[in-house]
Design a binder for these strands. Sequence first.
DNA 1: TGTACATCAGTGAACGCGCGTTCACTGATGTAC
DNA 2: TGTACATCAGTGAACGCGCGTTCACTGATGTAC
Lengths: 188, 188
Amino acid sequence: MRYSEDHKAKTHQRIIEEAALRFRRDGVGATGLQPLMKALGLTHGGFYAHFKSKDDLVETALQHAVQTLESSTAEVLHSAESPLPLFIQRYLSDLHRDNPGAGCPLPTMSAELGQRGEPSATTDAMVRNRLALIEQNLEGENAEDESVLMLSAMIGALLLSRSVKDPELSDRLLHTTRRLLIEKTQDQ
Amino acid sequence: MRYSEDHKAKTHQRIIEEAALRFRRDGVGATGLQPLMKALGLTHGGFYAHFKSKDDLVETALQHAVQTLESSTAEVLHSAESPLPLFIQRYLSDLHRDNPGAGCPLPTMSAELGQRGEPSATTDAMVRNRLALIEQNLEGENAEDESVLMLSAMIGALLLSRSVKDPELSDRLLHTTRRLLIEKTQDQ
DNA sequence: TGTACATCAGTGAACGCGCGTTCACTGATGTAC
DNA sequence: TGTACATCAGTGAACGCGCGTTCACTGATGTAC
């Protein structure tokens, strides 16, 4: 069968989006290409008309996730008067914790990507981007250093709050870190 | 062949230790039982004389790692006059970053364990233990909240510093977080 | 307008591979007599 | 002391399974004439 002109591009995009979701939610290693294609109503053979390999998809999906996150963050930054508290509020929200598939790839994917052979430079780019973003919205002379602490705390708190079984402990990790970091932005 | 009385117990322990190393260094999913047993000079069939399943080993190895870490931490706590800075120094050391197989399971394993079906209560126990440990060595009235921030920052910084490709960025993440957290303990 | 052909996204069987798990077996040593 | 037997940690072939990847094929539609 032959399809409309942009049909292939649409399928391509659908694969990327479904992969970006599954890689973050389930992990890269635990995401099979066969189930992924099936979920899109396709057969697995067709995958290689779109990507060179699974690793190719991993890199593409990661970059897609990064781009999506960054543009939604940019929106927050330009709309709010003091954007950093809002950014922290959203990053350490229950919604973000409960939907890893739609969120930041750092807490979910970076450990596995680091363990999987050569890591890509995408993680570096993302970390640098986040640090710059925080730093620019922090006042005070040691904003550069504080941004490192804040990013570390955000990622650690999100990771832990997702890994822990007890909902109360999870809430405590998430909400306490959130409150203290937001207070920090107001100290300055 | 029949072995000395404690032979089986020794083999059991060797499996646990090798697994605890590999699970943390390579990830649980990426660690095969066959290569693991082979590395110990054994064949894979014998594994099931020691453990009910891979999941059984995962839980056992995790608990072993936790126990080892906690006893080495206890040592630090009882030897030093002000133990918290030393604890942070060690947790966020280059040595710890460069040897995930011998270190804290939280940055390496917790994301994957959270993704793998039902998470065990061991993560909760570990988090609680670490929080209590930090809190007890922090002065000031909001030690309870500060301990959450510190633990999150430590785990996030270690995770990021291991995931990033550029050694300078890695050092910056690790060393800046370390310095700021140690300063925090002295503020109080 | 009607027919022959080219295109190519997607199909689905097949590939080798490593996984976790099972199981009949081995064989050195301890115990029973 | 010598012989028959029991033990059981470890062996290694085999199981079904899902993985990533390959490839000959399909068939609806566009293009050429």
